[in-house]
Design a protein around this nucleic acid. Sequence first.
DNA 1: CGTCTATTTGAATGTACTCAAAAGCGGTGG
DNA 2: CCACCGCTTTTGAGTACATTCAAATAGACG
Lengths: 190, 190
Amino acid sequence: MHQKILDHVSHIIDLNESEQAEFQSILSPLKLSKKEYLIKSGEFVHHNFFVVKGCLRAFYRDDQENEANLQFATEDWWISDYEALKDGIPARLNVECLEDCELLAIHRDAQEELYRRIPKFERFFRIKVMNSFIALRSRIMSNLQKSGKERYLEFYDHFPELENRIANYHIANYLGIKPESLSRIRKELI
Amino acid sequence: MHQKILDHVSHIIDLNESEQAEFQSILSPLKLSKKEYLIKSGEFVHHNFFVVKGCLRAFYRDDQENEANLQFATEDWWISDYEALKDGIPARLNVECLEDCELLAIHRDAQEELYRRIPKFERFFRIKVMNSFIALRSRIMSNLQKSGKERYLEFYDHFPELENRIANYHIANYLGIKPESLSRIRKELI
DNA sequence: CGTCTATTTGAATGTACTCAAAAGCGGTGG
DNA sequence: CCACCGCTTTTGAGTACATTCAAATAGACG
C-alpha cells in the first residue's frame, strides 16, 4: 500500500479500487542515502519519481563546474529530468539527495501505458504540470523584477519548512545570489 | 476552416473528421490591432488563445510600473494567464499586441467540455504544457547561470525570427537587462 | 519634412561580487 | 564531557560590472 501517493493523486482525480490497484502495480519503491545521486547528467533517464520522504535538489552543472539549483523536492513532489525522459536523450540535470530519501519510481513505458488504460491520468499529470508551469512563470517574473532580498522573502514565504532543512548556500544558489550576499540579507532582516 | 490550428494539433494527436469538426466548433476567431490588450491585469480571464497571426507579449507590471516580459507569442503559440483561467481569479498578467493579431479563442468551459468528450485533448495539452515547462526550466537555468550576453545569444539562437520583429527594449526586458546594456552587448558582437 | 520613439554613447554611481580570513556549528572519537 | 575536525556561515575590504541619468543620434511614420 502506497497510501501517500494515492492520497496525493486522489486530490485531483477519483480512482476506484481496481484503478488504484493498477496504479500501485507500476510503482517501484527505492531508498537512497544523503549525497547519493538519483539522476546524473549524461546518463539516460527511465523514470519519473515521487518523493515519499526526504529532500532532493535538481541542478545543472556547466563546464566550469558552476551549479544552478533548479528545484528542491520534498514529500509529495515529483522530480525527474522530463526532457531527457520524454525524448530519450541523456540527462542535462543532476538530482542529488540532501537527506536520506524514500521514493516511488514509475517507468516511462508504464506511465505511457497507464495513460492508455486510465486516461484520467493524462488529466492528473496535465494538471500537475500546469501547476508547475504556473509556479515557474512566477519564479521567472521574480528573477526579472525583484531584488535578492525580495526573492529570499518570497522563498521563505512559499517554503517556510525548507528554510531549516536546506543549507543556505543551496538556497542562495536557487535564488541566483552568492552565499555571502544571502548572509548579508539575512543579517539585515533580523 | 481553421487549418492552421488543426495542423498544429495534428502534430501531436490524430483527429477524425467529426473530432475536427467538434474542435473547430469551439474556436472563436478574433482580431486585435497593434497596442491593444488581449488581457489586462486585474480583469477576469475566460479564454485560452491560439495565435494564428501576429505577435504579442505577456508581462507583469508591479506597483512601481516596472514591467517584466514573460513571454512573446507568435504564430502557433498559445497564450493566456493560466493561473487566472484555472482558478477564476483576476489576471496578474497583461497581454499586449506588438503587431496586428489574428487569434482563436477557446472558452474555459468549452475546453473542459472538450476534455470530457475527446479525452485525447487532455493528452494534447499535457504535452504542450510539458514542453513549455521544460522551456521555462531551461530559461531559469540561464537566468541563474549565464551572463546577459550569453542569454542574448541564446535568445537569438532560439528565436532568430523575433530579433527583427520585436523592439530591443522588449528583448532586453525579457532577458533581464537594461536596453542600454543590450545595446552595448550588441555592439561588442558585431 | 517634422515629430515622436527607439537606440546608442558617455560618465558617474551603486550594488553584488570576489577573495581572504574569522567565527560558528555539528558530528566523532578520545 | 570535552577537544578536535571539517564544513557552513559570517564579516571585511577591494573590485568589477551593470545600472542610472543625460544627451545625442538614428529610425519610423504620418
